[in-house]
Design a protein around this nucleic acid. Structure first.
Length: 424
DNA sequence: TCTGGGGTCCTAGGACCC
DNA sequence: TCTGGGGTCCTAGGACCC
């Protein structure tokens, strides 16, 4: 027997659009869409007139003549997101980010100290409103599924907590596509078998359900329909991949035009990885064609890397491997993802310090050239200089753009001074 | 509503190892 | 030469989410 859990799901309302309305008072009360091209977020005023995210901007304007379309400002959204998460982290010990604008909070057992889930939810909303200036809705319940659905019911700008014992009454009338995790493919299979509501899922024996949607999906749907789902929260697990993609229009057989795209994609993704201090071992190519079919190719390297040249070489190999497909169909999207992430390992050597700082420096530089090649060494930085040990980190051209031989000499002079200070 | 850019997870099959 | 059971890693594709 496990104790009942108490989960909150906090979800910013029309996130990007709300940030725009917060930062530009003239947008408040007006229908706003964040674009360009495709609606990435629509304010509630715009939603009332039928604007939905994912719509083309042209279609959105047709439905909603007064629509104000503003360009997206991802920097501002990330900053707002960071501040919201700071508020959430102060409210509950376990916070699992689901995306930039939503998170689960585990408030199990906090009742005596912090109040009921409702009370916590109201406090959370007030804090986000005061400290970040954004509307946020909060749902609560005994499982992540219930909390997630409840926050949807709470929108906009509200709270909804599903009381223990009332979960099935809340769940069962819902159409199957409202289930978090039941998308178009699964919903279509269920509908084709005459299953339209969660209540109907609950009445079907799991083996029969498995024949419709497969074993794994059946197990998870059955658990949800009886509110037995017990997905644990995964606070602070960190990202699993870096990726970037770009919608293109490249006719069949014009694969030579892909190389410029490839370089741009690889540079963008490796730069982000380096500034996050991460490296990855698996490089994946994603292609989409004009009929929306997709192809992917992947390769796993022996060592994790975030170096542009290394990733680019791998990516070009994948493009080559996919050549037959790009020769046959028009390409509409090309993307890259790097997975199998690891923390970037600083290139670091530890050397004995027996013969004084000058000798240690020279030995370090020689050892580094030996180990990583002369070209790799652009700058050396002292990490620590305990008597007896020196530690150096190195940057190659790819991880440190300002590295140069002159910098190296300057660095050596500086570190030699510091080493003398520490020398016995 | 015909489609942007960023992610996550699952599954099946093959290769390889003991 | 044929044959277990168990495990890991990798690739391709699919589904789903915001």
């Amino acid at each position: 027997v496990t104790a009942a859990r108490s989960i909150l799901h906090a979800d910013l309302d029309a996130f990007f659009a709300s940030v725009e309305q917060r930062d530009d008072p003239s947008l408040r009360g007006r229908p706003v869409a964040v674009g360009p091209g495709v609606v990435m977020a629509a304010s509630y005023e715009a939603r009332q007139r039928g604007v939905r995210s994912g719509m083309g901007v042209a279609g959105a304007r047709r439905r909603c003549p007064g629509l104000v379309v503003v360009p997206s400002r991802f920097g501002a959204y990330l900053e707002a997101s960071r501040r919201v998460f700071a508020v959430l982290d102060a409210i509950a010990p376990d916070v699992e980010p689901l995306s930039v604008d939503e998170a689960f909070l585990d408030v199990t057992g906090l009742e005596r100290i912090c109040g009921t889930p409702e009370a916590i939810a109201h406090r959370l909303r007030a804090a986000v409103r005061e400290q970040v200036g954004l509307p946020i809705s909060v749902g609560g319940g005994s499982t992540t599924q219930i909390a997630k659905l409840a926050s949807g019911a709470a929108k906009p700008d509200g709270v909804r907590v599903v009381a223990p014992g009332t979960e099935l009454a809340f769940l069962h009338p819902l159409p199957v596509e409202r289930i978090w995790g039941c998308g178009p493919a699964t919903a279509a299979k269920l509908r084709a078998s005459g299953i339209a509501t969660v209540a109907q899922i609950a009445t079907i024996p799991e083996p029969a359900l498995a024949r419709i949607v497969g074993k794994a999906a059946a197990r998870s749907l059955a658990a949800i329909a009886w509110n037995r789902e017990n997905r644990p929260l995964r606070p602070g697990r960190g990202r699993r991949s870096f990726g970037t993609q770009s919608a293109v229009r490249i006719p069949a057989g014009a694969a030579d035009r892909l190389d410029a795209q490839a370089i741009a994609l690889v540079e963008r993704v490796t730069r982000r990885m380096r500034s996050a201090g991460r490296e990855g071992r698996t490089v994946a190519l994603r292609l989409r064609f004009d009929d929306y079919s997709r192809r992917s190719r992947a390769v796993t390297l022996r060592q994790p890397t975030a170096a542009t040249e290394t990733v680019l070489a791998a990516f070009r190999g994948l493009l080559d491997a996919a050549r037959e497909t790009t020769e046959q169909r028009d390409l509409t999207l090309v993307g890259i993802a790097v997975t199998n992430l690891a923390a970037a390992t600083p290139r670091q050597l530890e050397l004995p310090f027996d013969d004084g700082p000058g000798a240690a420096l020279d030995a370090a530089v020689d050892a580094v050239r030996d180990r990583f090649g002369a070209g790799a060494l652009r700058r050396a930085t002292l990490l620590g200089g305990d008597p007896g040990l020196t530690a150096w980190s190195l940057a190659d051209a790819d991880t440190d753009e300002i590295g140069s031989a002159r910098d190296l000499r300057a660095t050596r002079a500086r570190t030699a001074d510091r080493l003398s200070d520490r020398a016995p």
